[in-house]
Design a protein around this nucleic acid. Structure first.
Lengths: 220, 220
DNA sequence: CCAAAAGTGTTCAATCTACACCCATGC
DNA sequence: GCATGGGTGTAGATTGAACACTTTTGG
């Protein structure tokens, strides 16, 4: 902090809210109804008010769009925006969040919102395309060594549900037995004394995450 | 970006410049000569001017303090600063850089600067203590799977120099043979047809990094 | 008894860790 | 010839990947 020149730089926040639904990783987008980028799809966000921390503001945006609190929410990266030195905001602090699809209720705010498959969404305003790409890459990495998925599943779930969630995010099939072993050896989840009967086949044991909070693991 | 309220938030940049010297990981600090935090030690940085990207501004700060360009420089994290909602700046985008000790020439700027061991430096202004902690943690991680160390060593170096650099950063001794194998198998460095004679013992082969630019590696 | 999803072990290859001696040189 | 740092291999343990059959249930 050597200098304190006057400046026009502003801070914006953008939140990449991800969910898994019908075997697909999806992102919450809203359609802007005003310039800049009028009519484009964009991530929820806005300019950071004074006196609010970034984390608080991002959590508020998430709650405002989905009604969801206390989920996985993590800072991603800060982008200079726009890339051409024209107008504010100068910096966009990107966050990403993971929500259970069934719990999120899209609160029609100022502008219409909907879920889009991350593999196939319209071009986005600002540098939001890159934000989403980075968020998905980070999520894939985090799955390997954190309990991030707790935020995408109900409290009780079957192993098959967990595996399908992982597969949707990673975009590839996983070996059932190896997946069992790996997840259990990480100590992320614990079995319950309950089984779920669905249809004409063997009932599935239910599990839950030991901790439904962001958690890091042993040295990998 | 749903909303565009007026705001007082400002963007600052802070650069954690690290080097290894005499077996110790050190950080470049400057002593502030004006409020806020008059008389405290702090990271180089400042408020982001309009029309400049974060990366450009961080690179400029680095060059201004050390005269060094084209080194490892990477965004770290964005902190809300100060934690209490009092005064601007609202967000500090932290970067970290790695410089070769011998090449950096501290350009006495506005305020006095010096290298401090990261393990033992005075308390810092703003949230800079946390910035340094996070930077060191990130560096330790990056060493394992990137060529980041290129930026801490001269173009030609011996394996022992490389190992001592790693050990200084990680803070623990490494097994010489395992270190040889691991580094070579990563393909980061290549042997030169030169040897360095120093003192009364076997001359050491010289190596260089294949690429003296930030580079990621295979899937780890 | 058939269809459907749940649940479960073993083998092989690759990687990581621990560990100790000889080599080349200058004095 | 000795002191100094340079350079090298092997064995055991751990980890990750591939792979197929039996169990439980409802209809």
């Amino acid at each position: 902090m050597a200098e304190r020149k006057a400046t026009g730089a502003r801070v914006a926040v953008a939140v990449t809210i991800l969910t898994v639904h019908e075997g697909t990783l999806q992102v919450l987008l809203l359609r802007r109804g005003a310039p800049p980028f009028d009519g484009w799809w964009a991530l929820p966000g806005g300019l950071l008010p004074a006196g609010v921390t970034l984390d608080e503001f991002a959590a508020g945006k998430l709650a405002g769009e989905t009604g969801v609190r206390e989920v996985f929410l993590e800072q991603l990266y800060t982008f200079t925006e726009p890339p051409e030195p024209t107008a504010p905001p100068a910096a966009t602090v990107a966050y990403f969040a993971l929500v259970e699809h069934g719990v999120a209720t899209l609160r029609a705010g100022e502008w219409p919102t909907r879920w889009w498959p991350v593999a196939d969404h319209p071009p986005l305003a600002f540098t939001n395309d890159e934000v989403v790409r980075v968020a998905v890459a980070r999520l894939r990495g985090k799955l390997e060594y954190t309990n991030a998925a707790y935020s995408l599943l109900p409290e009780k779930f079957t192993f098959a549900q967990l595996q399908r969630t992982y597969e949707a995010i990673l975009g590839r099939p996983l070996d059932k037995r190896n997946f069992y072993r790996r997840i259990l050896s990480l100590g992320l989840i614990e079995p319950l004394d309950e089984h779920l009967k669905v249809g004409a086949h063997r009932p599935a044991a239910l599990f839950r995450f030991r901790r439904r909070q962001a958690e890091f693991l042993s040295p990998r």
